[in-house]
């Protein structure tokens, strides 16, 4: 899959929203957090995004989600393939 389309220059709001996402995973640097704060102060739309984003993180934590690993998925496929033959 090509990700070229993501290499376009980002608008300020998109850039800050991405930083907000990064902050949700505790991976934003100090200067990025500062940039978020400065932008949110003057952008109501991004403030709304930030609020909703925090809620989404809370929901994901609350749901205690787990996923299957790639090798487990392969095992299921193998099981089905073998049993579809017989």
């Amino acid at each position: 899959m090509s990700f070229e389309k993501y290499n376009k220059p980002l608008s300020k709001c998109l850039e800050v929203n991405c930083l907000c996402d990064k902050a949700q995973y505790n991976e934003a640097e100090k200067w990025e957090e500062q940039e978020i704060a400065e932008h949110l102060e003057k952008c109501p739309k991004c403030r709304e995004y930030s609020l909703r984003n925090t809620k989404l993180t809370e929901l994901c934590k609350k749901a205690k989600l787990e996923t299957l690993k790639e090798e487990e998925i392969i095992e299921f496929k193998k099981l089905l393939k073998e049993n579809l033959k017989s």
């Binding site: 990700f3 998109l14 991405c18 930083l19 990064k22 909703r52 989404l56």
Partner: peptide, 27 residues
């Protein structure tokens, strides 16, 4: 095979779509 900034844009798209989908009942 993507850069970190590509990844955060993808995460952003996923979170936006997920939030839109969950808006009505959960958000």
């Amino acid at each position: 095979g993507i850069s970190a900034s590509n990844l955060w844009v993808i995460i952003h798209r996923a979170r936006t779509a997920l939030a839109e989908c969950m808006e009505e009942k959960w958000l």
